[in-house]
Design a protein around this nucleic acid. Structure first.
Lengths: 197, 197
DNA sequence: CCTACCGATCGGTAGG
DNA sequence: CCTACCGATCGGTAGG
């Protein structure tokens, strides 16, 4: 019986996190009230605090979950035995696919990490900075190998990350370009450029 | 004397708008309180309402000012007698330069336009959609002229606009890449691509 | 441009 | 999981 209760609590917590992710995405962290979240859960606002410590915790779960996910993938790519430029392309594709498959979590993390509180805010920024550095190093290796043009590695990382992030503005309607097509076009523009040779 | 008062009021309004732009950039629209804005102006919150109709008006001024600025430039580029790809490059450079020279206004517009209220929200979205369509048409013309690869024009616009917008995450410190260098690298990546031919 | 104030809403707690 | 409630803060108004 104790086990049942524990499981139920755990599921409840996950449910809250799922709905919070959706609401944060729709309205933003600040504009999402605990009362609205509770309403969507079919309970009173006060009852939420039996499952979570506060609004903060929900944002933390989302942001640090994403950070762990990205770091894990970076590790994998670094350990693959492939050409540097293939590593870069894999990273670009991974970022695009994360935008497509984990849209809400990525979106919320990108926009709302600023509302994390210290010392978690500092921790998060440190992780992101370290991630971008590893990304830039892979680009530098591709430059050294003569596979990529001699651009500033950090400018390249910035261009890639922000271009990909722009997928959040992409209109997902049937009359528009499809997801796989968007991925191919974006990878092509970033690697081969718009201009015809 | 009436003239003096009118002038003073006008200056005061511009002052409020300047400070509001800075605060909106730092904290976001929702998190910026009229009390904090008033404090920065050296007055009480209630006094702000002698110069402006409400918090809404400040956001409107910023967002529609930017929209007008971008639309005006688009008109200019469309009327220039140059090759299609040169038009595209001019637009890319204009967007980058706007991010560098009107940083706070562009940043606030990009992030906080969602807080505009109807019917202005609809009007703004309509303007943005029309702008992106004109941008896509210029790209289509460059494709037709054989100057740009056959990508989906909207994918290209999305990639360009979001890559440029990413400049908001760029660290402006002396140890980092300079603004003109960033512009050149970004234009080069978008037009010629990262990969060496 | 100020004092004084309003109704609304917020995140969160006490106690059961 | 609920009722009842707290202190804080919000955008904005009345009246001068």
């Amino acid at each position: 019986m104790g086990k049942t209760v524990a499981l139920k609590t755990s599921n409840r917590k996950e449910q809250i996190l799922e709905i919070a992710t959706r609401l944060f995405h729709e309205k933003g962290y600040n504009a999402t009230s605990m009362r609205h979240l509770a309403e969507q859960m079919g309970m009173e606002a006060a009852s939420l605090y039996n499952h979570i410590s506060g609004k903060d915790e929900l944002l933390q779960q989302i942001c640090f979950g994403m950070a762990t996910h990205y770091n894990g993938h970076m590790e994998t790519v670094e350990n693959e035995i492939i050409r540097p430029i293939e590593r870069v392309e894999k990273l670009v594709r991974f970022h695009i696919e994360m935008m497509l498959t984990h849209f809400e979590e990525v979106y919320v993390t990108n926009r709302d990490w600023k509302h994390l509180k210290e010392p978690l805010l500092g921790n998060f920024l440190q992780q992101r900075k370290a991630y971008e550095k590893r990304f830039a190093q892979l680009i530098q290796q591709a430059i050294d190998a003569g596979e990529i043009k001699e651009v500033h590695p950090h400018a390249a990382v910035l261009t890639i990350l922000s271009a990909v992030r722009g997928i959040e503005f992409w209109q997902r309607n049937p009359r528009n370009i499809s997801a796989p097509q968007l991925e191919e076009d974006m990878v092509r523009i970033l690697l081969q450029g718009l201009q015809k040779a």
